[in-house]
Computed example of a mutant assay.
Amino acid sequence: MINGENPAERERVVADLDQLPGGSDFNRPNVARMYDYYLGGKNHFPADRAAADKVIELSKGHVREAVLENRAFLARAVRHLARERGIRRFLDLGAGLPTQGNVHEIALETAPDALVAYVDNDRVVASHGRALLAGDPRVRFLEADLRRPADIVALVEREAFPLDRPVGVLMVACLHFVPDEEDPAGIVARYRDLLPPGSHIVISHVSSDPVPGAMAAAGGVYNHANAPFEARRREEIARFFEGLDMVEPGLVPLNEWRPDPDAPPLRGAFLPVLGGVGVCS
């Protein structure tokens, strides 16, 4: 059972999921629940924990530092967009399970008039997200596939907010679950072309450069999950930002993107996750 904060609510969510077409396969590792486990959350099952523990072993424990740095990067990027760039509409693609430090919490704390739409194509994630986020008209959780930009833009305009002003689009730790044959760079480019000028695209992505062997082994673990995993070289990740104006300091390890003054040093020698923010012209 999903271990949420409200026992009655989580039981209702799981019961609802069992009524979905085809039921719910909780015996197969799920990348959103594995991520929640890395973060120390409570929304996971034995299959998720077993797969995540293999990745933790392969990474010598550094995957947990990487996901924490990813959440910290997400928070800094959202605050920067809300405070410095005047962004009031946020679209979080491949959002995963709601956890601490969510986009809407950060955005609304900075700008109470912000609107946030989460998007995920996992029906388990979407059902759980809708249940946890119900009640705030400024927040929506939509079930859709980030690989279909035109469909998502239409859905957001219909269900969440009109795209008549710049939007902050977050593709944080999701593109490494889109294989090369599905053209992730082309997907980003289509969002770039569909978004209003002045929109910002935030991307973080696992890099294979420092430890290619370990990354390949981690990919083997994820082959048994609900989505494949593909770490990429820096030059491949840089392609996602083509046609965008990069916000300083550009594409860098996450801990180097506008770090907080009191940020603790890395426990490991390096962080194999790159991130950056680009602006649509």
Rank of each mutant, 00 (worst) to 15 (best):
S127Q: 14
R130N: 08
A117M: 11
S127H: 10
V119G: 09
I87C: 12
P112L: 08
G96R: 06
R79D: 08
A117D: 11
P137S: 15
A77C: 15
E105L: 01
L91T: 06
L108H: 07
A107L: 11
E143Y: 08
G135E: 08
V139R: 08
G129S: 13
A75P: 01
V116T: 15
I106V: 15
L133E: 14
A117V: 07
A107T: 07
R138F: 06
A126C: 14
V78S: 14
R79E: 09
I87E: 04
L115I: 01
E109D: 15
N102H: 10
L97T: 01
D120N: 13
P137M: 06
L91C: 09
V119P: 10
L115V: 08
F90V: 03
G96F: 08
R138G: 15
L91Y: 00
E105H: 03
Q100T: 07
H128A: 15
R89C: 02
I87W: 04
D122P: 07
R138E: 09
L91W: 01
F141D: 04
V78R: 03
E84A: 13
P112H: 10
R140I: 11
A95S: 15
D136C: 13
L93G: 11
D113P: 02
L133P: 10
Y118K: 13
L74C: 08
F90A: 09
L81N: 02
R140P: 06
I87R: 00
G96V: 03
L108M: 07
A114D: 10
P112A: 12
P137N: 13
A117W: 08
L132F: 09
D92G: 04
A111K: 10
L142P: 12
G101R: 11
F141V: 09
A107F: 07
R130A: 14
Y118W: 12
A144E: 04
V124L: 13
N102M: 03
A134L: 03
D122H: 05
Y118G: 05
D113V: 00
L97A: 00
L81K: 02
R71D: 00
T99C: 07
V139A: 13
L132C: 11
R88F: 00
E84H: 01
F73G: 02
F90L: 08
A144T: 04
T110F: 00
V103S: 14
S127E: 12
F73W: 13
V125L: 14
T99W: 05
N121D: 07
N102D: 15
R88H: 07
I87T: 11
H80A: 14
P137G: 09
A95R: 05
A72T: 10
L133A: 13
D122W: 12
L132H: 11
R123M: 10
A126Q: 11
P112I: 03
A77W: 01
R83L: 10
L142Q: 04
E105F: 07
R89T: 01
D113W: 06
G86T: 00
A95F: 00
H80V: 00
